[in-house]
Design a binder for these strands. Structure first.
Lengths: 200, 200
DNA sequence: CTGGTTGCTAAGCGCTTGCTTAGCTTGGCG
DNA sequence: CGCCAAGCTAAGCAAGCGCTTAGCAACCAG
């Protein structure tokens, strides 16, 4: 099972009822947004009464935090694994390909991760922001390596880092599996575009 | 620059109280999202009681529609004007530069335009979707022209069109005028990156 | 068997929501 | 002046919100 195509492992969420609530919440948050989703909606997606939610989670916000935290960790892991070994070009290609494919494959989770940050409590947001900085740092490091060894020409390093990540992240906004290419094909296309953006 | 003082022409919105409600709604929707914004919040930003909103607009959704419609029209106009005259390279550079700068300059309106589509009524969404298709068509046409005259090499035309637009649109998500470059500088950088993505 | 823990539901509490109603004030016009 | 429309507010309604409480059935350990 490749890192690119692996489904997010929610097996660690126990018991099964808690997992059903979590996956129901992902679908609901991605569809309507956090604020427009009711606890009654989440509970009914899990086949339960509204009160059952509070047996497993102390609040609706906590549910969002669990999703956001695991989503961010998965995204960082995907990037870090793709960044192991090879030339800067190889690593950038692997990272953009995997990161893009992940945002397409898991566009529901990715939407929650990228667009519901403002609904997190300040403490929970701070925890997630740490992971986000690490994600930027991984990409910026690879670009720096490429500039150093002469394979990349980058005029504005932080700006180009944001652009490369931004390209992949925005996939979550528009991607529809019934209308667009496979996540892998999109990853390949985007990796090519990103390489063109920085090649010397 | 707040939506209130931005150079987007809201002068056509009359009377002044209606305009104050509209600009207050832009700021509130951009900050918290449509669903999390209350009519009491919008009214108080305009210095009025909650009931005064309904003198000028029949519903909260209608306020969103007016903002979304005008924002989409402004975005299409920006693109169309930048696409007039010159080589495909010149036109692509001008479009990406202007479209990116617009999304940075008007990131509050752009956030409402790009992220609150799901809150529109089906009829209002359909109206706005027409403009969105026109926006894609303008960019795709210029890429096609560049491929035809040999200045561009594009493997996947619809995919690359989305990527170019996506790059600029995502600026609205992360742009912060206190932390990032000026809209003009960002536009120049992004125009360069976009040209690199497609040049033969 | 008994006693306690786990996972759940029915009912509902206090509060906030979008929006409505009734009525007041203001300014223009005969 | 009298009249009316425009623009506003205070008060509040019905509905829906996140979350709590009380209690019940199923299970397992002793």
């Amino acid at each position: 099972m490749s890192a690119v195509t692996s489904p997010l492992a929610w097996a660690h969420v126990q018991p099964a009822a808690a997992r059903r609530l979590l996956t129901g919440a992902i679908d609901a948050f991605a569809e309507r947004g956090f604020q427009a989703t009711t606890t009654r909606d989440i509970a009914s997606r899990a086949g339960m009464s509204p009160a059952a939610l509070y047996v497993h989670y102390p609040s609706k916000e906590r549910l969002l935090f669990e999703i956001s935290l695991y989503g961010h960790r998965a995204a960082l892991e995907i990037l870090t694994e793709a960044n192991e070994g090879g030339s800067p070009s190889d690593r950038l290609r692997a990272m953009v390909s995997a990161f893009t494919a992940w945002h397409a494959e898991h566009h529901t989770i990715a939407r929650v991760v990228q667009y519901e940050l403002a609904a997190l409590s300040p403490e929970h947001f701070a925890e997630v922001a740490t992971i986000r900085r690490a994600i930027s740092a991984v990409v910026e490091k690879t670009l720096t390596d490429g500039v150093t060894d002469g394979t990349f020409t980058v005029e504005d390093l932080p700006g180009t880092t944001i652009a490369v990540l931004s390209l992949a992240v925005d996939v979550a906004r528009w991607y529809d599996p019934t209308r667009h290419a496979t996540p892998q094909a999109l990853g390949t296309l985007y990796a090519d575009l990103a390489l063109r953006m920085v090649q010397a």
